[in-house]
C-alpha cells in the first residue's frame, strides 16, 4: 500500500471532521472540559494526546499478533500508561509552567477514552502505518475541538488569549466583566454541546 493511499488518507482525515472523536464519537469529553479554561494548556493537551495516541497505536499495531488475548486490554493500558508517564516527565522537565497547569490531567490521558477506543477499534486490526495515521488523525481532531473550546473560554472568561490581554482596558472601565462561569467545567460542556449542534446542523448526514 502506498504511503497515503485512499484508505490511509481516510484514516488520517476522517477524524478531523465526520468521524471526530469528541463531537461524533463522543470520546474524551472529560479532559476536553478540564483543561480548556485557557488556550495554552488546551493546545499542549491536544498535542500530547496526538503524540501519545499515534505512538501507542503504532506500538500496539506492531505487537498486535503476539499479544495474548486474555491480557489484551492490560497490555494496551500498560503501553499507554508508559507513554503518558514519559510525556508527563518530559513536560515537567522542559515546560514546567504548563505541566503545573495540566497537573493531574496529563496523567488522566491514560483513561482518556479516545486512546483505548482507537486501540481496540483500529490498532488491533490494522497495520502499523495506517494505525499511526489514525492516531494522528484522532489526536488532531481532538485538539481542534479543544482549541475551539479553549479559545472561547479564555476569551470570555479571562479576556485574554494565550496569556495576552485581548479585551482592552476601556471595556472593563465601562462595566464589562469577565464571565466567571466560563472558567468552570459546566460552561465548557455547554460549549461542546453548541459545537456538536453547529457541527450537525452543518453536516446533515450525521443527523
Amino acid at each position: 500500500m502506498s504511503l497515503l493511499s485512499k484508505a490511509n488518507r481516510e484514516a488520517l482525515v476522517g477524524p478531523l471532521n465526520l468521524n471526530n472523536p469528541v463531537v461524533v464519537q463522543v470520546l474524551g469529553i472529560c479532559s476536553a472540559l478540564a483543561v480548556t479554561a485557557q488556550l495554552e494548556p488546551a493546545i499542549v493537551m491536544g498535542l500530547s494526546v496526538t503524540i501519545i495516541t499515534a505512538f501507542s497505536n503504532l506500538i500496539i499495531s506492531l505487537i498486535r499478533n503476539s499479544i495474548p488475548n486474555r491480557i489484551r486490554i492490560i497490555v494496551q493500558l500498560v503501553v499507554v500508561a508508559a507513554l503518558v508517564t514519559i510525556v508527563s516527565q518530559v513536560l515537567k522537565a522542559f515546560a514546567y509552567d504548563v505541566s503545573v497547569q495540566l497537573s493531574v490531567y496529563v496523567g488522566l490521558i491514560i483513561t482518556n477514552c479516545i486512546l483505548m477506543g482507537r486501540l481496540e477499534a483500529f490498532a488491533m486490526m490494522n497495520k502499523p502505518w495506517p494505525s499511526f495515521l489514525d492516531g494522528i488523525g484522532n489526536g488532531i481532531g481532538y485538539a481542534i475541538i479543544l482549541v475551539i473550546v479553549g479559545f472561547v473560554r479564555e476569551l470570555l472568561g479571562s479576556g485574554s488569549l494565550l496569556g495576552f490581554q485581548v479585551i482592552p482596558e476601556w471595556c472593563y472601565e465601562h462595566g464589562y466583566m469577565n464571565n466567571g462561569m466560563m472558567t468552570m467545567p459546566a460552561m465548557s460542556l455547554i460549549i461542546v454541546g453548541c459545537v456538536i449542534w453547529a457541527h450537525r446542523a452543518y453536516n446533515k448526514e450525521l443527523q
Partner: peptide, 10 residues
C-alpha cells in the same frame, strides 16, 4: 444561577 456563577461580584 448563570448570573451567580458568571458574575459573582455583581
Amino acid at each position: 444561577a448563570f448570573l451567580f456563577f458568571s458574575y459573582p461580584s455583581s
